[in-house]
Design a protein around this nucleic acid. Sequence first.
DNA 1: CACAACAGAGAGCACTGCTCTTGCGCGGGC
DNA 2: GCCCGCGCAAGAGCAGTGCTCTCTGTTGTG
Lengths: 236, 236
Amino acid sequence: MSSPSAPPGGARARARLEVTAAIKEAARRHLAAGGAAQLSLRAVARELGMVSSALYRYFPSRDDLLTALITDAYDSLGEAAETAHAEVADAAPPHRWTTVCAAVRRWALAHPHEYALIYGTPVPGYRAPLTTLPAASRVGLLLIGVARDAHRRGQLAAPPLPAGLRAEAARLAADIAPDLPPATVTALVAAWAQLYGLVGFELFGQFDRMVEDREPFFRHATARLAESVGLRAGTA
Amino acid sequence: MSSPSAPPGGARARARLEVTAAIKEAARRHLAAGGAAQLSLRAVARELGMVSSALYRYFPSRDDLLTALITDAYDSLGEAAETAHAEVADAAPPHRWTTVCAAVRRWALAHPHEYALIYGTPVPGYRAPLTTLPAASRVGLLLIGVARDAHRRGQLAAPPLPAGLRAEAARLAADIAPDLPPATVTALVAAWAQLYGLVGFELFGQFDRMVEDREPFFRHATARLAESVGLRAGTA
DNA sequence: CACAACAGAGAGCACTGCTCTTGCGCGGGC
DNA sequence: GCCCGCGCAAGAGCAGTGCTCTCTGTTGTG
C-alpha cells in the first residue's frame, strides 16, 4: 500500500476514511438487523475486530455515528428518488409525481430502519443537526420541481386557499418556492406530510390485517395527492 | 400474577392495583421527560422507593410495562377524540371530521412522547400484542362513524376508485364498514394515514423553520381531507 | 390458627456508552 | 535513512441498564 508519489490525502488519511466507511457499513448492518436502539458501539467494534474504545477515534459518540447514518440515509433516499424521476422526466406531471412517491415507498420498504431513523420518532435526546438539512431536502426539492415544471407549462391548477391561511401561505411560498402560487406551495407541504403518513403507516404495521394489496392502494392515494396539489396531465 | 382467581375486593388485590397504578404513573412521567428509550425500570423503582427487582412482581418485563402504557395512551387519545366529537355530534359531517382531527392533534401536542409511543417508530424487537387493538381502533371508529352518518343523510359523495383497486376496496369495506361504499372506505383509510402524517410531521419537527401558523394550516389540510373522503355539508 | 402465597430486598450476570491511561508502530519531516 | 511524534488500538474501569435468583418477613385466607 505504498504509492511513492505523493498520495492524495496521505496514506494515513486514506486508511482513516476506509475504517470510517467500514464502521458505518457494519453499523448499517446492525441497524437493519435490529433498529436504532439495538445499535451498539461495542457490537460494531466486535464485528470489526476492534475494541470499543478504538471506535471513539472515529466517532466521538454514539449519537455522532447515528448522525452520520442519518445523513447517508437522506442521501440514499434522495438519490433513489432522483434516479426514479430521471427516467420519467419528460412525462406528464402527475406521472412524475407518483413515480417519485413510489420510489420513496420502495426505498422505505427496502430500508425500513433507515427510514425510521430519518422520518420516525427522533431517537434519544433528539437534536437534529443542521448539517443534515441539505441531504434532507432532496426529495422535497424534487417534488417542488415537478410542480414548478407543471406551473411553467400551464399544467397546474391552484388549489383552494381559505382567507385565514393567506399570510402563512405567502410566507411559506417566499421561503420555499417564490415562483409558485402560495396555494400550491401550501398544498405541496401538506401533501409531503401526507405522503410520509402513507409510507409510515405501511412501514410501521398500521396497515397489517387491513390493506393487503398495498402497492395499488398507495399508487391511487398518491395520484389523488397529485390532484390535491393541482397537477394536471393535459395543457390548461 | 398469572391469574388471580381470588374474589374481587380483596385488600391485597386492591393494594396491588394501587401499586400498579403508581408504577404506571411514574413511568408515564419518565416517558414524558425523556421518551421511551429513556424509560428505565430502575429509575422508576428508585422514584417509588422500591428496589428494581420488586417491580417485576407487577410487570414481567420492561416491554410489558410499555405495552400497558401504550394501551393507556390509545385509550386516552380515543377518549379525547370522543369527547371533542360529542360536542359537535349534530353538526355537519365536515365539521365533525375536522373537530376529531383537531382533537387528535391537540392530544398529540400535549402528550408527544405517548403519541410517539403509539404512532411513531415501533420500539425495536417489540411487537404490539393484539390486546391493544380495541383501544387502538377508537379514533378510527369515530371517523368511520362520521362517514356513516353522512352516508345515511345523503351527505356523502363517493370518491373516485380506479378499476385496479376495486377488489382491494371491496375487501377493505367488508372488513371495516360493509355498509359504506368501498370507495369511501378506501379513501377513509388513506385519509387516516395522511392525518397521522400531518400530526407526525408537526410533532417530530419536520415543520420547524417552515410552517409557523400551524393550527390554521392543519385545519385547512384536514378540511381538504374531509373533501377527499366525500363528506359534504349540505344535503345531496 | 397455621400456612402458603406474596411482596420486597439484595446480590449478581451480562450487557451498554463512555473515559482515561498506556504502549505500540508507522508516516512524515529532518 | 533515521528517528521522533502522532495516530491508533488496547485494556481497565465507572456508572448505568434489564433481568434472574434466592432469601426473608409479612399478611391474607382457608
